[in-house]
Nucleic acid binder design. Structure first.
Lengths: 233, 233
DNA sequence: TCCGCTTGTTACAATTCGTAAGGTTTGGGA
DNA sequence: TCCCAAACCTTACGAATTGTAACAAGCGGA
């Protein structure tokens, strides 16, 4: 279904939580950061559709960051700031921001303004979403996996949901509970089995050795870890 | 390079003056109106780049006007309103406005926000009547598809509706619901089949391999994705 | 009126994906 | 070490979704 990806950059944990909850509720995928350094590192591997940026971060000048983002990324940039002076807003917008929201904000308005940005072609859900990892190439446009030899294997919507979850959080433990939530399945033992099957099918397409999986590793009693070196382009 | 044209629609003369002065100072051409009727009449002869619209006009429902403007797609629409409720803003943005500025406003910010809109021009898709994609050429003048060898295949109105929908949103998921809405079909299981058939016929004309479609891809449970690299001329 | 084209409808084939059932692995305890 | 229960994997099956061929209704032109 290709949900749009929105990044949140703010040093206040409470604000990150509020935004992330509201955005996921509204049907977006989110990635949260408290520091510009971590955010910029993540941009090397992810390609967001919209970036929410707080000015006044401790480890960088927000405006410089905004300017850089606007120039380099295809993403729309929305500033969320406590600085309410008109002059701040004008320079923020001039430096390349697509919108400027003042704290305190209402999450519903943030969602609405993000949707507006996604409507216009600039950030309209980035096409050509391709992730590369360990010789594989996964295209979420054509729903195909391509191996090093160029051989294509289509993957289904359900498999894609799982794959995307992994590709968005490589080398991190993903608990079954998290997975259930992201995949929108009702809780219960029966959906547990359904997830197993999804993962099993995905493993088959990735040609994993059942005895010795290299990419999707099971952590008994805890969840899964995806071990690929992921790069989104 | 001519100056961008901005229209101002507000029933308070003082506001019109302030805005017009600030905008012309900033290098825009402006047209001011106090009534929606006059504004809509002017649209027949002028093609503004940005429209500033006040809600709460005496002779029309502002939101309806905004919606109509947004659909006709030429210009960016910015609402300027005294109604400060979050809900007002959200519905305004949802109905198609590109920005929402609350009175009282600072003219400098209005100018900045207009400039942002001009930076990312809206797609002017409706002018092009010929689309090229992956060796094909689709003409909506003559309702024909032409392949690389120059061989023509006519397509019908119903097929054209589907094709246009795809060509306007390439590489994006189009849900069945969206499609039904755009194609004006009543909901219901029977129309669902009708849509399948339309798409099936279009696929035949595009010589898609049923086992492995390259252009119109089905996402089970979600909708369709058109994978061509589209260029309108 | 007849003919051909378009388009919706019906019926059935094909695909996807959750569910059930049985097998395998894991890790702790005897 | 062996045993066992819980956790996890895989296969097969069936309900839901989607594809397509065949038919019928509607329309316009000769």
């Amino acid at each position: 279904m290709t949900k749009p990806l929105v990044t949140i950059l703010d040093d206040e944990p409470a604000i990150r939580t509020i935004l992330a909850d509201a955005l996921e509720e509204a049907g977006f995928r989110t990635l949260s950061f408290s520091r510009a350094a971590a955010f910029e590192a993540a941009l090397k591997t992810h390609k967001p559709d919209v970036c929410l940026v707080d000015l006044g971060l401790p480890d960088t000048d927000g405006l410089t960051l905004v300017h850089k983002l606007a120039l380099e990324q295809g993403a729309a940039v929305i500033i969320i700031s406590g600085r309410a002076q008109v002059q701040d807003r004008v320079t923020g917008l001039e430096l390349g921001a697509d919108d400027y929201i003042i704290k305190p904000f209402d999450p519903a308005e943030v969602v609405a303004r993000i949707r507006v940005r996604l409507r216009t072609p600039k950030a309209a859900t980035q096409t050509g979403q391709i992730a590369r990892f360990n010789g594989w190439e996964a295209s979420f446009d054509s729903y195909t996996l391509t191996d090093e030899a160029g051989q294509e294997t289509p993957f289904s919507h359900a498999e894609g949901e799982v794959l995307r979850l992994f590709l968005d959080a490589p080398k991190r433990l993903i608990s079954r509970a998290q997975m259930q939530e992201s995949l929108g399945g009702g809780a219960g033992d029966s959906f547990d089995r359904a997830m197993d099957v999804r993962i099993s099918r995905l493993r088959t397409k990735l040609r994993e050795d059942p005895k010795n999986p290299r990419l999707i590793k099971t952590i008994y009693g805890a969840g899964y870890i995806f071990l690929g070196d992921v790069q989104w382009t």
